[in-house]
Structures are given as C-alpha cells and as structure tokens.
Amino acid sequence: MKAPLPALPDRGGPAQPMLTVNGLRRWFRLDGKRVIRAVDGLDFSVAKGTTLGIVGESGCGKSTAAKLVAGIEPADAGEVVLDGEVFWARGARIGPEARRAVQMVFQDSHSSLNPRMTAAESIAFGPEAHGVKPGAARDYARALLEAVGLPPDRFADRPPMALSGGQRQRVNIARALALRPRVLLLDEPVSALDKSVEAQVLNLLVRLRAQLDLTYVFISHDLSVVRYVADEVAVMYLGQVVEQAPASVIFARPSHPYTRALFASKPSVDPRRRIAAPPIQGDPPDPVDPPSGCRFRTRCGFAEALCATGTPPLGTVAPAHRVACWMTVPRSGHSQAGVAA
C-alpha cells in the first residue's frame, strides 16, 4: 500500500513512552454550582507498540478522557506528551501535522460516519485535508478498505446505511488509519457489535497494530475485550484510576476491591460455575457529587472511617502495579493494611 502521506518520524527511540498523560482534569459545570468531576487527575503512560486498556463503568469518565487526550475537548489541567514532545498543554493549539499522530475510533453508531458520504469519501477526507489530491486520496482509501477486509470494488461507493455494524466499524478504523497516526484511541470500538463480529474486529485491530507499528489506548466497559487486546490495564472509577498493572498481573492478582468486584461480576459461559452472590451492591454513585475520600467506599465491603476522610494515593504495590486503596498502604491505619496486597 503506497501512502500519499509521509510516516511520522520516531523521535524518542524505543524506550521513550509513546504517550504520557499527566494530571489530566476536566470538570463540567452544571447550573453554576454543581460540578461533574468527569476526569479528576489522570496519569498514565503507554509504551510504544503496546495497548493500554482502560476499563470502567458508565460515568467513570473514560470517554471524556479519550477526547481530552486527543485534544478535541479542552482540559482544565494536565498535559499530554507524545513520544517525548508535548502534544498539547493547556492553552496551546495542536498544529495540523502533529494532529495526525493521534486519531480516534468511535463506538459504531449512526453518528460515526457521515450519512452523505460513501465509505471511500469518508476515508479520503483526512488525507485531502492534508493536501493530498482527491484522486490519490481515493486510491489510498480503496487500499485502506482492502487492508481492513472490505473489498473496495464492493464497498468503496456504499453509504453508511448500506453497511452492517461490523463493516461500518472497519470503515471507521480505515478512516483513522488514513492519516498514518502513531496512536489510536479506541473508544468502545466493539461494544455495539454482535459477538461474532466483535471477534473479527478485535482480531483485525490486533493484526493492524503489529503491521503498522501502532500504539493503542483501548477504552471499554467490557472486561473481556480489554483482557483480549491490552498489555496494560487501567481500571477507572468515577474519574480516577484505582488500579493499573500489566494485564497478566492484574488478571491474576487484582488488588483493588473494585477491580476484584468488576472481575467477579463477569459471568462465565459454564453453567456449572455460576456466581453465587453479587460481588458488590448498588449502582455507581452520581459523578456530580462523588463520595469524599476514597470514591469507592460507599460500595466497598472493607470501608472504614479512614476511607471517608483521606483519598488513597495511587501507590506502587509491586513493580509496575499501582493501586489506590488504603489497604495496600502499609501503616495507613486501615485494619486490613498490608494484608490484601
């Protein structure tokens, strides 16, 4: 596939993290006084060629986080560093060339593709915006369609209405790839798809990452898809990361009570191994008025007085394994301190 746009250079070398997010914060003000703390102090970094999975329930701020990182939504605080260079910091604009480096794939919905454009036109739009001639952009779009498994002769001229959910999602992926990005932010890319189609798209994403040397931030409410694609997993709860570790570590030894509850809530497909009782009760609290101290304490079986007063720091409990829970902080004053970790 001959791309009409040049590849973006690798400046920092293999050891430099591809993406580093520092102190990201975004609060939405509602009718003056009340505030939704959608993203409230987010830090993470993603190594080159790997996938960070961000998992969390509705209202935890994971989609807002993606838009903030992409620079499409203004942040109140924080910065994003891309391959050692500032991608954006508060108040700064991103140049069109740098812009290409970070692209998004959205949840398949009727709004993810322009209903008045054919598949090839949607894909060709980005390159055209960067000065590629329409003819060349169109040829490139056809090549990309081929790369995502849609034969261009059949699909290039179809409007989104004439595509199935899985096909639309492949077009979305091709559109994001058209700018030759280095980072893809995937916001619930498979959650609207049927399981058999989900597997196709997940495998496609895994394959493309290796082929095109991409780095992914994969956001989902579904633990199992995150487990499938992610090398590193961050668990979010009400705007904050409560646990982060390599996938092999977090799935083997989940440490935060919320992570454990989330994992234990996933039914298996074996009718002999049913879940006896729900791991936790209640719904996630309203992000408008999050609980004081540890935000999970209202649903946590181990909550003590300490949890209501102090916010637990995201501390390292083992190499590359960080947890925000008083129980993992030695001598924190929690009766279980040191036991759970």
């Binding site: 329930e57 509705s58 409410h221 579904d222 633990l223 509850a261 989330l262 809530s265 996933k266 039914p267 879940i275 009782a277 729900p278 791991p279 936790i280 009760q281 719904d283 996630p284 649903r299």
Partner: peptide, 11 residues
C-alpha cells in the same frame, strides 16, 4: 446495565 449492576439484577 454496567457489569457490577448487571450481575445484581441477573441474580
């Protein structure tokens, strides 16, 4: 429903 809520309703 969210995963932790789904299992509550299901059970």
């Amino acid at each position: 429903l969210d995963a932790t809520v789904q299992i509550q309703v299901l059970l």
